[in-house]
């Protein structure tokens, strides 16, 4: 039974990389064929034109900045909001997961705030923080905060009671149990939350930039729309995908290092 399942899984990195290249290649071919041989070509540019535009814009100018600079602006906003949101989220999640009284106080509020999508906060954030960076960072903070809080809380709640009891029997104090058991045991759940949080943060920065900004990938797309420049719109979209993909890889690598104990034996 297990062999049947394993047949469809592979841990061979080379095979995975080849499969990924084939999939991306096929997508590009399909895109090229669709735009060159069908009416789709009247609505969107082909992949070659988009990739050429990205190549030109990487160090050239799209608006007032290069694409690299636009990525940098968006990344800076994401990183600040994500870092603050994750820190607060992890701390609050662990507290709520471990201390019943913290859960009783904060969880009702959190349950109300959590389902509200970050973009619903855009008007309020503009009223509170104006049209500058603070409003964007606030929105990204909200996007990162919810996911990390939820996963950290789940991690702290699911610590094996036998491990906790073993530590208690060895004389561990409440503080030692929290720092030496609850915190490390929650790391895989925290990382699962961070993975979702980074994607949400990235999605939110684009929404925030689309409302009001003069740089960033969100601005690139909105400016393209205003100028009816489909190549610029698609360049922005492709760059969002590429940066999101790189961020996901970085997060996965960090998780592999910090949670290497969570892998089964060979």
């Amino acid at each position: 039974m297990k062999k049947g399942v394993l047949k469809y899984r592979t841990s061979d990195k080379t095979v995975n990389a080849v499969c990924a290249c084939i999939a991306i290649g096929l997508f590009l071919i399909l895109w090229y064929w669709g735009t060159a041989a069908t009416k789709l070509g009247m609505m969107i540019p082909g992949p070659i034109e988009v990739l050429q535009a990205i190549g030109r814009g990487l160090f050239g100018k799209v608006g007032r900045h290069s694409i690299i600079a636009h990525v940098g602006y968006s990344m800076m906003r994401v990183m600040v909001g994500f870092a603050i949101g994750s820190l607060v989220g992890v701390a609050l999640g662990l507290l709520m997961g471990w201390y019943g009284i913290a859960e009783a106080i904060f969880n009702p509020l959190f349950r109300i705030i959590r389902p509200i999508p970050p973009i619903a906060w855009i008007p309020i954030s503009i009223i509170w923080f104006g049209l500058g960076e603070d409003a964007k960072i606030f929105l990204i903070f909200l996007a990162a905060f919810s996911n990390t809080t939820l996963n950290s809380m789940a991690g702290a709640k699911s610590v094996d009671p036998e491990v906790i009891n073993a530590a208690k029997m060895l004389g561990a104090s409440e503080r030692q149990i929290f720092t030496t058991i609850v915190l490390p045991a929650s790391v895989p759940s925290i990382f699962a939350g961070l993975q979702v949080a980074i994607s949400s943060s990235w999605a939110t920065v684009l929404a925030a930039e689309m409302v009001r900004s003069s740089e960033g990938l969100g601005w690139m797309i909105v400016a393209g729309m205003n100028n009816n420049d489909m190549i610029q719109i698609l360049s922005g979209i492709v760059m969002i995908g590429i940066v999101g993909f790189i961020l996901a890889i970085i997060m996965r690598k960090a998780e592999e290092v910090l949670c290497r104990w969570n892998k089964s034996g060979e």
Binding site: E162, V163, A166, M169, L170, I181, P184, V187, W261
Partner: peptide
């Protein structure tokens, strides 16, 4: 257990998986 030296071995696995 915090003042005296007691140890407990449980029925199931109680090792810390991250150590």
């Amino acid at each position: 257990p915090r003042k005296q030296n007691i140890a407990y071995i449980f029925q199931g696995d109680s090792t810390m998986p991250w150590l």
